[in-house]
């Protein structure tokens, strides 16, 4: 039972990882790529790591509970660190005056290497 729950959570996390990594390749400029990178990482880590924590709580012994607690700690850390890192990177780009893509630029291949 718990095995199936872990499978579902991990598969969902992998799907979101796939979608946002594709977004990292497809979005037209740096700012919108950051949307994909920052948000996808947070939710996919949440899904996969909670699935793994459940899997290790399968037979609760002291060692397994400690492992699950550590996985939860990684989760909380990613939860706090990911928005902060996103903010730091996007601020660095803004300060270095990376030009944002707007709809008016469409079709000029302004920022990307004509992918």
């Amino acid at each position: 039972m718990i095995d199936y729950l872990t499978m579902i959570l991990t598969a969902a996390g992998l799907f979101f990882f796939f979608a946002t990594t594709l977004g990292l390749l497809r979005f037209p400029d740096f700012y919108s790529r950051m949307h994909a990178a920052g948000k996808g990482d947070t939710l996919s880590s949440l899904l996969i790591l909670s699935g793994l924590a459940l899997y290790h709580l399968h037979d609760p012994s002291t060692a397994n509970i400690l492992v699950a607690a550590k996985i939860l700690f990684i989760l909380v850390f990613i939860f706090m660190a990911s928005p902060t890192a996103t903010h730091a990177i996007i601020d660095a780009g803004y300060q270095s005056e990376v030009k944002p893509w707007t709809r008016a630029d469409d079709g000029e291949g302004d920022d990307d290497l004509a992918v």
């Binding site: 950051m34 990178a37 880590s45 996969i48 790591l49 990613i78 890192a85 990177i89 660095a92 290497l113």
Partner: peptide
């Protein structure tokens, strides 16, 4: 790339995946 910031973003994403 094309910018340094893009490269950094890619490296961060790879790092999160490595953790998992």
């Amino acid at each position: 790339g094309p910018t340094i910031i893009d490269r950094m973003m890619g490296a961060t994403v790879i790092g999160t995946k490595t953790t998992i």
